[in-house]
Simulated scan of single mutants.
Amino acid sequence: MLRLRTLLLALASAFALSGCQYHVLSPQGWVGDQQRNLLIISTLLMLIVIIPVLIMAVYFPLKYRADRDDTSDYDPTFEHSNKIEVVIWGVPILIIIALGYFTYVYTHRLDPYAPLDHLEAGAPVEVQAVSLDWKWLFIYPEFGVASVNELAIPEGRPVNFSLTSSTVMNTLSIPALGGMVYSMAGMETKLHLIADETGTFPGRSAHYSGPGFSHMTFDTLSMSDEDFNAWITDVKAKGATLDRTSYLELEKPTIDEPVRYYGSVEDALFRRIVELCVEDGKVCMGHMMMQDELGGGGIEGIPNASAYSYDRARTIDGFGNLIELPDVEVKAFHEAFWNDPDAICSPDFVFAEKKNNG
């Protein structure tokens, strides 16, 4: 009965795992191929040590067990062997050298910021990817269109990604094509991929980012040039307009967002997203850093604090719902400082500031 249960459990496990997709070991792009090769090479090199250790872990206890009959090979005066020392030290050193060499080669070969021009695979496609809560926005600046939770790319042509985030850090991961790079608010990162075959490959965020993380997935549609151009034409015909106003609406947290398209995109919208100044009246990151370099706004700049605030308007609770916080009351701070600079350090003022401004 126990054997039958064990067999049934094994069959159930095999059935459950039969739906798994092993894109890392069966990639569909040059970058994924190179990463798979490095994984296999590293595994084989480490097995040079692991397999002999596993064999010796069984062989030596059996051969030299205390109750064995033949003890003629027992040598109580044995204390050193040059051959053994060469093996136990030389082999690991050679493996480490080999691992270091391959890691160095593949690290430079697979630099995510390095374009794939050496493949001579045709003109690349530019894609600006924005991680939102909890969905992906893909902007095609060359064509003036955008999509949500669907990425279309032409097969056999490099795709140059520019990535950023509206709030927390995320990672763009398409295992079948390889690579995984972070997207961060106020920064622009790069990733270069290519699909060698047509098909639909799953993509997702691989970095936990809140309650909607499990639904932050998308399909990567690898298609021929003709089908890709048809997809662009279809999006232009059916899609809405993505401007600063519609982006701010799209940016609001949603879970399990359906695929949607935008037939036109406002110029320089991605740059404003990176600079955290899509909203009217917000100071862009570049100007903010320039002001900091020049000494900042000083006390006179305190009343303009709302123009530099970004995260406050995007505060959410544990369920992903926006929390409306009261406006920052900087006037009280400003007046208190001018009337009595020492007053801002008093317990009463600190309590009032915490109550009003968090």
Rank of each mutant, 00 (worst) to 15 (best):
L2Q: 15
R3T: 15
L4S: 15
L9I: 10
A10V: 14
S13L: 14
A16V: 12
H23Y: 14
Q34D: 09
M46P: 03
M46D: 06
I50Y: 12
P52N: 02
A57R: 01
V58A: 09
F60T: 05
P61L: 01
L62W: 09
L62C: 06
K63S: 04
K63V: 08
Y64G: 08
D70A: 06
S72M: 10
T77G: 11
E79W: 09
E79G: 11
E79I: 14
H80F: 15
I88D: 09
P92I: 13
I95T: 07
A98P: 07
R109S: 15
A114L: 15
P115H: 07
L116V: 03
H118D: 14
E120K: 04
G122Y: 01
V125Y: 10
V125E: 12
A129N: 05
K135V: 07
K135F: 00
L137G: 03
Y140C: 04
S147E: 11
V148N: 00
V148H: 00
N149E: 05
P154T: 08
G156N: 01
P158D: 07
F161W: 07
F161P: 00
S166N: 11
L172K: 10
L177N: 02
G179A: 11
M180V: 03
M180S: 04
S183E: 06
A185M: 12
G186R: 01
T189R: 04
L193H: 12
D196G: 06
H207I: 12
H207K: 13
F213A: 12
L221W: 14
L221K: 07
S222P: 08
S222C: 08
S222T: 00
D225S: 05
E226V: 15
A230E: 06
A230W: 08
W231F: 14
A240K: 07
T241R: 10
L248A: 01
L250G: 06
I255D: 00
E257L: 10
P258H: 04
Y261H: 11
Y262K: 00
Y262E: 06
G263C: 01
S264D: 10
S264K: 05
R271G: 13
R272F: 14
R272S: 00
I273S: 00
E275L: 12
G281K: 11
K282H: 10
C284L: 02
G286P: 07
E293H: 06
G295M: 05
G295L: 00
G297A: 13
I299A: 01
I299M: 08
I302M: 04
S306G: 04
A307Q: 08
Y308E: 11
S309L: 13
S309D: 05
A313G: 06
R314W: 08
R314D: 05
G320N: 09
G320C: 03
V328P: 01
V328Q: 12
K331C: 07
D342N: 05
A343H: 12
D348K: 14
D348M: 08
K354A: 11
K355T: 09
K355S: 07
N356Q: 04
N356R: 01
G358F: 15
